[in-house]
C-alpha cells in the first residue's frame, strides 16, 4: 500500500504538531529552571530514556504490523537475570554472558513470533501469556535474588561516555537510524506497512508476511534484551522485577507518536518525538515539584487527548 498524499500530509502534520509541542515544552521548562536547558541535563535525560527508547523503536514496527508486544518488559527482566546468573553462577566471562543473554532475548522474541505466525494466536493473547511466562522464568531462575558487583568496565554501557557523549545516546541514535531506514526505505519496511494495512492482501501479493512478522518480534526481543543490559549497567544491580510496566510506556510513546493501534500507520520519527516529549514532561514536572504519580496522570490525559485530536483532524480532513 502506498500512502495517499492526503494521509502523508496528515502524518507530517502530526509530527510537526509533536515537534512544536516539544519545542514549547522545552521553552517553558528552560524558563522555569536554569538547570534544565543545560547540555549536561539534556544528555542525562537521553540516558534515562534510552531503555524505553530502544523498545519503543521495535514496538513501532510491531504496532504498524497491527500487532502488539506486551512481553517486552519481561524479556528485559529475563535478559538482565540471565546476564547476572551466567556471569556469577555459571562463571562465563562477562562479554560472553552479555551476548548469550541477548541471544536468549532474541529467542524469546522469536518465540512470540512463532506463536503468532505458526499458531495464529492473536498477538495480544500470545504476548500476554509470554509476559507472564518470561517474567516467571526470570523469577524462577533467580529465586528473586539480586546480582551485584559487576566489574568496573561493564558500567561504561550505562554510566560511561563515548567521544564525550553518554554511551546510550550513541546506541539510541544508531538504533533509531537503522530502524527508521529499514522502515522507510526498504522492501522489509514496505512489507511491514502492507501487513498492517491489509494482511490478507499482503499474503495474496505473495509478500513474506510470516517471515517479516518473525523478524519484527525477534527485533522486539533483541531491543528488550539490550534495554535490560543497559539498565543493569546503569543501576549496577540485577533484579527479576526489572522492566515491569515498560510495555505501557513504549505503547504510549508509539500511539502518541501517531501510529494507529490497528496497524498500517506510524513512523519512527513520530515515536521518537513522542518519547522525547514524555521524558521532558516527566523531568520538567519533577523540577516543578510534581511527583512521578502526578506525571503519570498527565501522560494518560495526553495520550487520550492526542488520539481525540487526531480523530478530530481526520474528520475535518475528510470533509
Amino acid at each position: 500500500m502506498s500512502p495517499t498524499s492526503g494521509r502523508l500530509n496528515l502524518l507530517l502534520s502530526h509530527e510537526a504538531m509533536l515537534a512544536i509541542l516539544l519545542a514549547v515544552t522545552l521553552l517553558i521548562l528552560s524558563l522555569l529552571s536554569d538547570s534544565f536547558f543545560s547540555t549536561a541535563n539534556l544528555l542525562n535525560q537521553v540516558r534515562l530514556t534510552a531503555e524505553i527508547g530502544l523498545i519503543t523503536l521495535a514496538m513501532t514496527l510491531v504496532i504498524i504490523t497491527g500487532g502488539i508486544d506486551l512481553s517486552v518488559g519481561s524479556i528485559a527482566g529475563l535478559s538482565a537475570i540471565m546476564l547476572g546468573l551466567l556471569w556469577q553462577k555459571a562463571g562465563l566471562p562477562l562479554p560472553l554472558a552479555a551476548v548469550t543473554s541477548l541471544g536468549i532475548a532474541v529467542l524469546a522474541g522469536l518465540g512470540n513470533g512463532v506463536i503468532i505466525t505458526r499458531f495464529r494466536v492473536p498477538p495480544l493473547i500470545a504476548t500476554l501469556a509470554t509476559m507472564a511466562f518470561y517474567r516467571g522464568l526470570a523469577e524462577g531462575f533467580s529465586q528473586s535474588r539480586s546480582v551485584r558487583g559487576y566489574p568496573e568496565g561493564f558500567y561504561i554501557l550505562g554510566q560511561g561516555e563515548v567521544l564525550g557523549l553518554p554511551t546510550q545516546v550513541w546506541i539510541l541514535i544508531v538504533a533509531a537510524v537503522l530502524v527508521g531506514t529499514a522502515l522507510s526505505a526498504t522492501a522489509f519496511g514496505r512489507t511491514v506497512f502492507a501487513i498492517g494495512a491489509n494482511e490478507t492482501a499482503a499474503r495474496f501479493s505473495s509478500l513474506p508476511v510470516d517471515r517479516v512478522k518473525l523478524i519484527v518480534y525477534g527485533l522486539s526481543g533483541f531491543m528488550s534484551g539490550l534495554s535490560g543490559l543497559l539498565l543493569v549497567s546503569r543501576v549496577t544491580t540485577t533484579r527479576s522485577d526489572m522492566g515491569m510496566g515498560w510495555e505501557l510506556d513504549a505503547i504510549t510513546a508509539v500511539v502518541l507518536g501517531g501510529a494507529s493501534i490497528f496497524g498500517g500507520r506510524g513512523t519512527v520519527l513520530g515515536s521518537v518525538l513522542a518519547l522525547a516529549l514524555i521524558q521532558c514532561l516527566k523531568s520538567g514536572l519533577s523540577l516543578a515539584g510534581v511527583k512521578a504519580d502526578g506525571t503519570i496522570v498527565l501522560i494518560g490525559l495526553f495520550l487520550i487527548g492526542a488520539v481525540l485530536l487526531g480523530n478530530l483532524m481526520d474528520r475535518i480532513a475528510a470533509r
Binding site: I251, I261, D293, I296, L301, L303, I304, V307
Partner: peptide
C-alpha cells in the same frame, strides 16, 4: 462513550485511563 462516539480505540483509551487512575490514586 469515548470509545463509541469519539472513536478512540478501547486499548488506547483504557491505557490512558490506567495511567490516570493509577497515578491519581497515589496523588
Amino acid at each position: 462513550w469515548l470509545v463509541a462516539y469519539a472513536h478512540i480505540p478501547s486499548i488506547v483509551l483504557t491505557l490512558g485511563l490506567l495511567s490516570i487512575l493509577k497515578g491519581g490514586l497515589i496523588v
